[in-house]
Simulated assay, not measured.
Amino acid sequence: MMWLMWHMWVLLALSALLGGVIGWILRGARPEGTLRLPPREKPVAADPVPAAEPAKPMSSPEPAKPETVRPAPVAAKTGADATAGPDDLTRIKGLGPKAESTLAEAGVFHFRQIAAWSAADIEKYDALLNARGRIVRDNWVGQAKELAKG
């Protein structure tokens, strides 16, 4: 029995070693970002060398401006809604504080906005929240319609 266990350890060590060698070969045995180039050959004296052009001053490229993400515009507030702040979206079953903050970043603050979602909006926000179908399963649109009334 002991011989069998010792034999299995030897096979395990050999397979690990073989895997390391294969990985080293496939990776190319060099750190990321390095490029192997063949050594340059020196030009033969018989080859004509073209005259070098004078160096032109290089202009530095403009740095790329980061794109700013702006929340979607919210419809104008009227009446009692104008004085009220954002709704507590966590009252919708299945919508937690993290999802509420993500929706706020996307410009969704009120039940009436969720109540007006179309099928395309549901797909968009399902992907944004990584909800995996929870919006439809928990009927967020229906719950939002009820909460928007009262």
Rank of each mutant, 00 (worst) to 15 (best):
A106M: 07
R30E: 05
M58Y: 14
A64W: 08
L35T: 12
A106G: 07
T90E: 00
H7Q: 15
L129H: 00
P71A: 04
V21L: 11
A29K: 10
P97A: 12
I92N: 01
K124M: 12
I135Y: 06
L4V: 14
M2H: 12
I22V: 12
G20V: 05
D138V: 10
K65W: 02
G142D: 09
A72R: 13
A106H: 11
L4R: 13
A80C: 00
R30G: 07
S101L: 11
T34S: 08
P86S: 03
L4T: 14
A116T: 04
E123H: 09
P57C: 02
L14I: 10
P86V: 00
A80F: 04
Y125Q: 03
V44M: 09
F109T: 04
G96H: 05
K42D: 09
A51Q: 07
E100N: 10
Q113P: 00
G23Q: 07
A148E: 06
V136Q: 14
L103F: 04
E62W: 11
A16P: 07
M2D: 13
R137I: 06
G150F: 14
A29Q: 14
G33N: 02
A72W: 06
L95F: 05
R112N: 06
E67L: 13
E123N: 13
D121I: 05
E146P: 00
G96Y: 01
L11G: 15
L17E: 02
P63Q: 11
L103T: 06
A82I: 01
V69Y: 11
K65H: 03
R70V: 15
L103Y: 04
L17P: 01
R132G: 12
P63T: 12
L95R: 04
A148Y: 02
R132C: 06
T34V: 11
K42T: 11
E105C: 06
G107P: 07
E100R: 15
A55M: 09
I92W: 02
L12D: 08
E67V: 13
K65M: 06
D47Q: 10
S59A: 14
R112F: 03
A76F: 06
A75Q: 10
K149A: 15
G19H: 08
P86T: 00
W140V: 04
S118N: 01
L4W: 09
E146M: 04
L95E: 02
V21F: 09
A46W: 12
V69K: 10
S60R: 08
S101T: 12
R30H: 09
P50Y: 02
A64M: 08
A51I: 04
E105S: 13
D138W: 11
L26D: 10
S60V: 09
A120G: 05
P54T: 13
L95D: 00
I92K: 00
Q113L: 01
A119L: 08
I25Y: 10
